[in-house]
Design a protein around this nucleic acid. Structure first.
Lengths: 152, 152
DNA sequence: TCGAATTAGTCAGGGCACTGAGTATTTCGG
DNA sequence: CCGAAATACTCAGTGCCCTGACTAATTCGA
């Protein structure tokens, strides 16, 4: 009676979108390495020697989650983790050779997957898709840090 | 060197979108009841007496996940779960009074939250957002069931 | 009618995501 | 120089999400 239509709820849609992506990733890219794992690997290939916190920030994972992801990647031998001799709090990360190789392989597959994923949209629509989703996500993330204290 | 820009990856964007939504839900709707839990409650308010599988289908959760969500809702006393006397395989679900009350309360808050979430977009853009995201999600979900065997 | 599918649900296992509390290390102010 | 604050990370706890293997119940066909 008083129920709403979930199709009008952007959050529900967001969840479905991610599930859909997960499915496609799993079948077209890899069953071993997940999308967040690839994101971490990608960040380290771009800039080896980053510490955990920074990588997490770059790919959008909190301190706990990034720790888990790194543990798994390290267990698979795709990255090395060493204590920073300059600052004993940090762990410095860099991809292994195997990690670099895997990253290269998945990059190709990921590109193909993205095409399939966005295939239902025209080129202009794809641009729009990125723009709209990014603006919504950015705005909501912005609400987290209540925007620099106005005064001073 | 060979790293890609994650901003061009729809999957990464989808993940960020969902995280953003989760954050907003948590602060504006409820810290107790999650968005998937609300979706299940909503389906049962619309149609009490559904079985687990059907509810899962309606809200987009697989058999295992729907079972967990229902356990939690039931533990909180928001729904009743009874064996179908007509078909001993099924569990029939219906919201309790408390469940209905909670659903009503959250419906109001959810509407407010959705407005804030989509605030960065104009009215037309919001329509577009729904259309684009829905089409991408639908298409990917469609790939799961390889579309009715062409020749019978 | 009786045995082979089919169907609903459970269970174990792996992974993502967040919070709050706790530990170790560094930095900074007095 | 030394203690308080900040910083990086770990750990425990909760919840979502999926697969594959299993159990119980029903249905369907020979």
């Amino acid at each position: 009676m008083a129920a709403v239509d979930l199709a009008t709820h952007p959050g529900h849609l967001a969840r479905r979108l991610q599930q859909a992506h997960w499915l496609l990733w799993n079948t077209m890219v890899s069953e071993e390495i997940t999308s967040p794992q690839f994101a971490v690997l990608n960040a380290l290939v771009a800039q080896p020697g980053l510490d955990q916190r920074t990588v997490g920030e770059r790919v959008g994972l909190d301190r706990s989650t990034i720790a888990e992801v790194i543990t798994r990647l390290s267990r698979r031998g795709l990255l090395d983790k060493v204590r920073d001799p300059q600052d004993g709090r940090r762990s410095l990360l860099r991809p292994t050779e195997e990690g670099t190789r895997v990253h290269r392989k998945l990059t190709v597959r990921t590109a193909r997957m993205n095409q399939v994923f966005l295939a239902p949209l025209s080129a202009e629509e794809q641009g729009l898709f990125f723009d709209l989703v990014q603006r919504v996500a950015d705005a909501a993330e912005g609400l987290r840090n209540p925007a620099e204290p106005a005064a001073r």
